[in-house]
Design a protein around this nucleic acid. Structure first.
Lengths: 155, 155
DNA sequence: TATTGTTATACTCTATAACTATA
DNA sequence: TATAGTTATAGAGTATAACAATA
């Protein structure tokens, strides 16, 4: 006989099923899979969109503050921003008050790009929580916000 | 005057704060940061540990089932398993019933390694949910389990 | 001295496709 | 034909350290 586990559903992950880090990792992979599925939006990737979106919400934001909030390291942020600059989406300005810093703003093109993607991004997001009921999804989001230290800010 | 956002706490992420995918990404990064902080365990990385752990829970598991459950692509799984084999942690067997498949088992060394890491991994996990109360953490875990399609299996 | 951002390097993880051997 | 796994390659993302300019 052969008792080997050959189907996903038979896999016993044991105590790992109660591990927050493990569940967050699986959850993120699932969310991204859903996002990139046949119905998901195209073009800008979630990470890229989030950077542009946060700049659009905070015109003139310092590169360091942006990176800290999105947990992107300085070295990587430099590359990302240069990419956006090359695409004409973001402009950099060095403030007189601190000439080490860089303040980021969207260009007109950048604002259009964000506007175009935002609608499909956020409406798609609503469908992402498939296995959960509406109230469950709301509570999951609330708990995650608390965990990562994010308060929902009014518009 | 200079109104630019220069502190993390001033950053307004707008509607992104309600995005499940975004929150899952931040949450995972936070959990990993915590894990790797000064108090976190050393040696085996969370991803590596999870692979070995699941093999230990499912002796003889097929490589494909393992990869599907942990959302690791076949090509990557091959590299991981070879690495573990080279370290003498995992042994591969080709079953007669299907000579395309590979069944994975921990070696004695592998079992010891998992045993050694498991205790510190899981006890550390308990401290990971810092910003949440015990009941909140429990519910967050329950919702995530439902979201990713994991049932807690009794020992 | 500390901070902001840049550069350079390397490593991990991921994505893809072509390949084998079995079924 | 389809499946399980392998190989090879390229691209993200990340980590690190050394560096310049400024504070």
């Amino acid at each position: 006989m052969d008792f080997s586990v050959r189907n996903v559903d038979q896999v016993d992950v044991g105590a790992l099923a109660g591990s927050l880090g493990f569940l967050l990792r699986l959850g993120q992979l699932k969310a991204f899979d859903d996002f990139y599925s046949e119905n998901g939006p195209r073009g800008l990737k979630p990470g890229e969109f989030s950077v542009l979106w946060v700049i659009s919400c905070n015109p003139g934001i310092r590169q360091s503050a942006l990176g800290q909030r999105l947990m992107i390291k300085r070295a990587h942020m430099t590359k990302l921003i240069r990419g956006f600059e090359d695409q004409g989406l973001v402009s950099r300005a060095i403030p007189d008050s601190d000439r080490r810093a860089v303040e980021l703003t969207l260009t007109a093109t950048g604002r259009e790009a964000v506007k175009a993607v935002a609608e499909t991004f956020f409406t798609y997001e609503e469908t992402t929580g498939a296995p959960l009921s509406k109230p469950e999804l709301r509570q999951l989001i609330a708990l995650l916000q608390k965990y990562v230290g994010l308060e929902e800010t009014g518009p």
